[in-house]
Design a protein around this nucleic acid. Sequence first.
DNA 1: CAGTGGTCTAGACCACTCC
DNA 2: GAGTGGTCTAGACCACTGT
Lengths: 234, 234
Amino acid sequence: MTTLNRRIRAHIEQRILSGDWPPGHRIPFEHELMAEFGCARMTVNKAIAALVDAGLIVRRRRGGSFVAEPRVHAPVLAVPDIRAEVETRSRRYSHKLLMRRRRTAVAGNAVERQLAGAADLLELECLHMADDRPFAFEERQISLAAAPSAEDVDFSVTPPGTWLLDAVPWTEAEHRIAAINADKRIADLLDIKPHTACLLVERRTWRGEVDVTHVRQIFPGSDYDLIARFTPKS
Amino acid sequence: MTTLNRRIRAHIEQRILSGDWPPGHRIPFEHELMAEFGCARMTVNKAIAALVDAGLIVRRRRGGSFVAEPRVHAPVLAVPDIRAEVETRSRRYSHKLLMRRRRTAVAGNAVERQLAGAADLLELECLHMADDRPFAFEERQISLAAAPSAEDVDFSVTPPGTWLLDAVPWTEAEHRIAAINADKRIADLLDIKPHTACLLVERRTWRGEVDVTHVRQIFPGSDYDLIARFTPKS
DNA sequence: CAGTGGTCTAGACCACTCC
DNA sequence: GAGTGGTCTAGACCACTGT
């Protein structure tokens, strides 16, 4: 058993999270919900106020109450798994492997040569989708010296980041975060207008001294932001 | 002007944030606050419920309502000081104070009201320069409840972030990082083309439960990036 | 200017828990 | 058992805003 205002809240929340009421959709007026649940207006109001607090709903006098536009947050301080993040937001994840090849490190590129070590690199490009809409573009190099089993994985089934988090332990990572304007290729891939601001996340991951993988992920700025919560360094 | 339940909330909050009512202290019963403010119980209840939500108060049936014990967190990152960063790169730092005013929190803005506490906000806008070229635009609100001495500082001499880092100890911060296209005003201020991708860094900083300052910093994407280096969380 | 949400009132009954 | 908070009711007046 639970309280009435929580049931009303859950009722609305479920319709939003299930996609039944998409962003921008007008939810029933307070008096309609009063009739539907047979209760006082304060009770409906309390339920909706909680959803406003949670950022799921915005209210406008005279206009009504509307499902808020979603924004996805990710912690800066964890290595993000895009699939997990998409699914946390009750959106359906899928991905497309755009490119996969094995190659040697470019001789003049010190960073690549350090990553490759004594072996080859596996180079991948993929597109992450949320509800069949492009969510992020990813370019990745994996060191076959550090993760030889990557050679045998079908990355069109498991996204590379998800597989790596599971299969290859890491001890240290470095993020570089910047803003870029989408060029034509990125705009096409992400289905956004050229020149739209995007968040670029570059990450290098090590296991001990061994360089495991480098990745560049590009997110449309309107869809994604990073969150870091922390305390002063000792 | 503000609502009664917010005034009651502010009244209680101020006593907690000032240390007048330490953690574990029992706050007045609902019926006492009803008498003190001459209002209905629901109004008092709404005020206290918001403080429970904010984690400032815990309630026990029959026992009463008590000031909550503050949380503790593990250290991880650092709050950047733009002056220090510019100077680290061997560029000459300067800044311009564009706006300074004292005002009350916007009643409908819960985040601002939490920041303000029982006092006013100091609102600042400034432009950070590296070698006399614009480097970042900053909008900042400082809680005069948390940092009353900010009222007397000449921020055209010391940049607000630098002063705060020195003058006001903090225990917790939260970054939100996103990519945005520069609008006309930002483009003018930063001397870049409109629509250029910029990095938006929003930071909230607390001392214990007390909200100290909020800041929005906008950097041209081409000039700036953020680096975070870390190890897996325990 | 009609209709929405924002806020408040003055009650009520109940569950829990400390004394 | 007495007193707290948890929840809910059935009203009310007001501010704002879209038509």
